[in-house]
C-alpha cells in the first residue's frame, strides 16, 4: 500500500511516495510551483506517480502541506509545513532536536521531541532577507544558478552586507558590483548574511539534540557549511533537503492508513 505527501511551496512543488508499511521511499518529484498552485499539485502528483510506476487511484492516502496546501482537492488531510518538516527531519535523523528550514518565502526554527512532535517554533516571514527569495534576487543580479553561487561563495571572502532588508541589500549589491567587487565575494557575503539571520531565530529556542537543516537552500553544501560555522553546531543535511516537508506529509499519510480518522 502506497501513500503520498505533497508540499506546494512558493518556489517549488514537491511530492514523495512511501510504502505505508515499511516507510521506504518509492519515489519523489520536484517541479517549479509556477502561478497556478492547483495545477502544480496535479502535475507534481502525476510526476511522482509516474516515477513510482503506480496510478493516482492506487494511493491509499495523500497529505498536503505548504502554502498551497488548501488548493489540493484530493488530499485526505492538510497539515502545516512546520509539522511536516519536523516529522521528516526526525525520520531521517532520529536524534534531531531542532529543525532549521529556509524556504522560498520564510525561514523557521522548530524545536521537536524524540518522536518528531513540535514543541515550539518561530518563523521569520515578514522580511525576505533570511529566505530563499533573497538568494533568488542575488542569482538574478549576478546571473548565476544556486550551484554557481555556491561554488563562487566557497572561493570568495565574504564582504559585509549591512542592509537587513532585501530591497536595500539589492541596492547595496549593485553598488558593490559597480565598485568592481568580485561576484564571489558578494555571494560569500550574502551567504553569511542569511546564515546570521538564521542565527537570531536559532538563538530564540534552546537547542536540545541535533540540528537538522532542511529546505532548498540546504542542498548547497557551501551554505550548509557556512550556517554550521555561524551557529557553532554541526548540522545534519538530508540527501534531498528540499523534499523533507513532503516526506513528513507522506509519513503522516502512512499513519492515516492505520488510525481511523
Amino acid at each position: 500500500m502506497f501513500v503520498a505527501g505533497i508540499d506546494i511551496g512558493s518556489v517549488a512543488a514537491k511530492a514523495v511516495i512511501l510504502d505505508a508499511q515499511t516507510l521506504s521511499e518509492a519515489a519523489f518529484a520536484v517541479i517549479p510551483s509556477g502561478w497556478n498552485t492547483r495545477e502544480a499539485g496535479e502535475q507534481v502528483l502525476s510526476a511522482v506517480c509516474q516515477q513510482a510506476d503506480i496510478t493516482h487511484s492506487s494511493l491509499s492516502h495523500i497529505v498536503g502541506t505548504g502554502y498551497g496546501r488548501i488548493a489540493l482537492p484530493w488530499a485526505d488531510k492538510v497539515v502545516t509545513e512546520i509539522t511536516c518538516h519536523a516529522r521528516g527531519a526526525a525520520h531521517l535523523f532520529p536524534q534531531t532536536g531542532m529543525v532549521l528550514d529556509i524556504g522560498g518565502q520564510d525561514s523557521k526554527a522548530i524545536s521537536i521531541d524524540s518522536k518528531g512532535n513540535v514543541l515550539d517554533f518561530i518563523m521569520n516571514d515578514k522580511c525576505a532577507a533570511g529566505t530563499g527569495r533573497f538568494l533568488q534576487m542575488l542569482s538574478g543580479l549576478l546571473g548565476m544558478t544556486l550551484e554557481e553561487l555556491s561554488s563562487a561563495a566557497e572561493q570568495g571572502t565574504p564582504v559585509a552586507i549591512s542592509s537587513m532588508c532585501a530591497v536595500f541589500a539589492e541596492t547595496e549589491i549593485i553598488g558593490l558590483l559597480a565598485q568592481g567587487t568580485p561576484p564571489s565575494h558578494i555571494a560569500a557575503g550574502v551567504f553569511t548574511a542569511i546564515a546570521r539571520r538564521m542565527r537570531t531565530l536559532f538563538g530564540r529556542i534552546p537547542l536540545r539534540g541535533e540540528c537538522t537543516f532542511t529546505g532548498g537552500l540546504a542542498s548547497s553544501t557551501a551554505f550548509a557549511r557556512r550556517l554550521s560555522q555561524e551557529l557553532s553546531v554541526a548540522v545534519n543535511v538530508p540527501p534531498q533537503p528540499q523534499i523533507t516537508g513532503a516526506l513528513g506529509a507522506a509519513l503522516i499519510a502512512a499513519k492515516l492508513t492505520t488510525t481511523p480518522h
Partner: peptide, 16 residues
Amino acid sequence: ADTEQLNVRIEAFLEM
C-alpha cells in the same frame, strides 16, 4: 495582509 502567514502559525500551534 498577513492572513496566510498567520494561518500557518496558528494551524501549526493547534497541531502541536
